[in-house]
């Protein structure tokens, strides 16, 4: 139960951060990605701000035996830099660059009640479903 509250609170903080930083606004994201145009470097500061907190915090958290509310850490097991990682990241980048939404802001932007973000999210789920349908069995 306590961990369910923890999930909600961290989601809340995350959503607040996406709004405060304006990462939730596709126009802002595209202005950041448009390095050859009227470049707005603001969103580089989002990553800087996040890492300034998360880097030292993670360092101390990983010194613990485990998390506070659950028995152990659930971390990604893969280590290798394989073609799937690179191809997946490249395809993701194309989609991100076409619209200006990545998964977190796509969800948070629902708070602005726009049909376009709902369409994008449905397509995102469809893309994940296609991956599951075609590629998961060989994983």
């Amino acid at each position: 139960m306590a961990s369910l509250v923890a999930f909600f609170i961290s989601g809340l903080l995350f959503g607040l951060g996406l709004a405060v930083s304006q990462m939730v606004n596709p126009a802002k994201v595209l202005a950041f990605l448009d390095v050859a145009g009227d470049w707005d470097p603001s969103l580089a500061f989002v990553m800087a701000g996040a890492l300034m907190v998360a880097l030292p915090a993670f360092h101390f958290i990983f010194r613990r035996e485990g998390p506070v509310l659950t028995p152990k850490f659930s971390l990604p097991l893969r280590q290798e830099i394989d073609p799937r990682l690179l191809l997946g990241a490249a395809l993701f980048g194309i989609g991100w660059g076409l619209v200006g939404l990545c998964p977190g802001p796509a969800v948070a932007s629902l708070a602005y009640f726009k049909d376009s973000t709902v369409i994008f999210l449905l397509a995102l789920f469809a893309g994940m479903g296609l991956h599951r349908f075609f590629l998961k069995p060989r994983d």
């Binding site: 990604p76 893969r78 799937r84 990682l85 690179l86 191809l87 997946g88 990241a89 490249a90 395809l91 993701f92 980048g93 194309i94 989609g95 991100w96 076409l98 619209v99 939404l101 990545c102 998964p103 796509a106 376009s116 369409i119 994008f120 999210l121 449905l122 397509a123 995102l124 789920f125 469809a126 893309g127 994940m128 479903g129 296609l130 991956h131 599951r132 590629l135």
Partner: peptide, 16 residues
């Protein structure tokens, strides 16, 4: 929007 969403969904699933 649809093409972008499909690419983001498929790409993030493939690239984990």
């Amino acid at each position: 929007l649809i093409v972008g969403g499909l690419l983001v969904g498929f790409g993030t699933a493939l690239g984990r």
